[in-house]
Amino acid sequence: MPGPTPARPSPAGDTPPVPAADVLVVEDEPSLRTVLARTLGFAGHRVRSAGGVAEARAAVEDAVPDLVVLDVMLPDGSGLDLCAHLRTHHQSVAVVFLTARDDVDDRLTGFALGGDDYLTKPFSVAELVARVAAVLRRSLPSAPVSLGGAHPDALVVGDLSLSEGAHEVTRGGDHLELSPTEFRLLALLALNAGRVLSKQQILEQVWGYDFGGDGGVVEKFVSQLRRKVDDGRVPLLHTVRGFGYVLREPR
């Protein structure tokens, strides 16, 4: 991979400040791992690094990070499997995938397993820093959730309750485990309960204008969110063919 240039701080503007976070970089190529760790450290984060799946799992068990920058292809296993492990045992950890394969199916698999963003090699470290910042803004409990105006901390739709301050979701009193991106998607739908949102609107609000994804990503996330929210219950999350998705109380 060509030598990346150091990231520069973004100019001041309306963008919310990036919360400092505990970041784990999992990359088997030593020079790239060093560059990524130093760059993210320069951006204000507390960074540890690992060269493979086993080392990464040990690092997570030692201290759970806020975010993992995770290479998909590792010498002792798959980053996708490690992501699945994180989603099972540490739901709150955000994941940004790195991969040499620019394949739509690979990206959708990563998102289906709970990944929050995806970068294809080669990439600039400035882009990685920006993507990490965007994921942290929407995933850390200390980061303000900006979904378009003032609103109460608790969003309630039928027997579904979502607390943005605590990042907790319950339905019928049962706690639901959601990834950071699933939580933000559900918060957007709950804030707009009864209103149909298009895939493009969801991409812009949940992933950001510069995400570069497509409608398939939204479909995957809505599908897995529906399994968690509606499984065995009266459906709240509905597809309106040709228009988008809506969260509404049972009629």
Results as ranks from 00 to 15, higher is better:
Glu127Gln: 14
Val64Tyr: 13
Arg226Ile: 04
Leu119His: 11
Ser223Tyr: 12
Asp14Thr: 15
Ala58His: 06
Arg57Glu: 15
Arg131Gly: 06
Ala50Met: 01
Thr239His: 12
Gln91His: 13
Ser198Gly: 15
Val218Ser: 08
Ala94Trp: 04
Glu177Ile: 08
Asp71Asn: 08
His151Lys: 09
Ala150Pro: 10
Ser146Lys: 15
His85Glu: 15
Val135Phe: 14
Ala112Leu: 03
Asp174Pro: 02
Gly13Leu: 01
Leu70Gln: 09
Ala7Asp: 09
Gly51Gln: 02
Pro2Lys: 02
Val157His: 07
Leu247Glu: 01
Arg48Asp: 15
Val93Phe: 08
Leu40Gly: 08
Ala7Leu: 00
Ala58Asn: 14
Gly148Asp: 09
Val104Cys: 05
Leu178Phe: 11
Val53Asp: 08
His45Glu: 04
Leu128His: 15
Gly149Leu: 05
Val69Thr: 13
Ala130Met: 09
Asp102Arg: 04
Thr15Glu: 14
Gly41Phe: 07
Val169Asp: 12
Leu160Ile: 03
Leu119Asn: 03
Ala126Asn: 13
Val229Glu: 07
Leu189Val: 07
Ala56Trp: 08
Val217Trp: 07
Asp230Ile: 10
Arg251Thr: 12
Asn192Trp: 07
Ala187Leu: 12
Cys83Ala: 14
Leu140Ile: 05
Ser146His: 12
Asp28Met: 03
Val218Arg: 06
Pro30Ala: 01
Leu40Asn: 00
Val145Gly: 10
Pro180Leu: 10
Gly115Ile: 12
Gly208Trp: 11
Leu80Lys: 11
Gly165Ile: 07
Val196Glu: 06
Ala21Val: 00
Val96Met: 04
Pro65Leu: 02
His167Ala: 13
Gly52Val: 10
Leu155Ala: 09
Pro9Asn: 00
Leu160Glu: 05
Gly194Tyr: 03
Val95Phe: 04
Ser198Trp: 13
Gly158Met: 01
Asp153Leu: 13
Glu249Met: 08
Glu55Ile: 03
Leu247Asn: 02
Ser92His: 15
Gly242Val: 04
Asp230Lys: 10
Val104His: 07
Gly173Arg: 05
Ser92Lys: 06
Gly3Arg: 05
Leu176Gly: 04
Arg101Val: 15
Ala43Ser: 03
Ala126Asp: 14
Val18Trp: 02
Leu113Lys: 11
His89Ile: 05
Gly44Leu: 07
Leu70Ser: 08
Cys83Ser: 06
Asp231Tyr: 11
Leu188His: 14
Glu61Cys: 08
Arg171Lys: 03
Leu237Gly: 09
Val135Tyr: 11
His238Ser: 13
His238Leu: 13
Gly212Lys: 00
Pro4Glu: 04
Asp66His: 12
Pro152Ala: 07
Val25Cys: 11
Val26Lys: 08
Tyr245Cys: 01
Ser124Phe: 00
Thr109Ile: 10
Pro250Asp: 07
Arg87Trp: 10
Glu61Val: 14
Pro152Cys: 06
Arg131Thr: 13
Val53Tyr: 12
Leu128Ile: 06
Glu27Pro: 03
Lys121Thr: 05
Ala50Ser: 09
Arg38Asn: 10
Asp153Pro: 08
Pro144Asn: 03
Pro9Ala: 02
Ala20Val: 13
Glu249Gly: 04
Ala37Ser: 15
Ser31Thr: 10
Leu225Phe: 06
Leu98Lys: 02
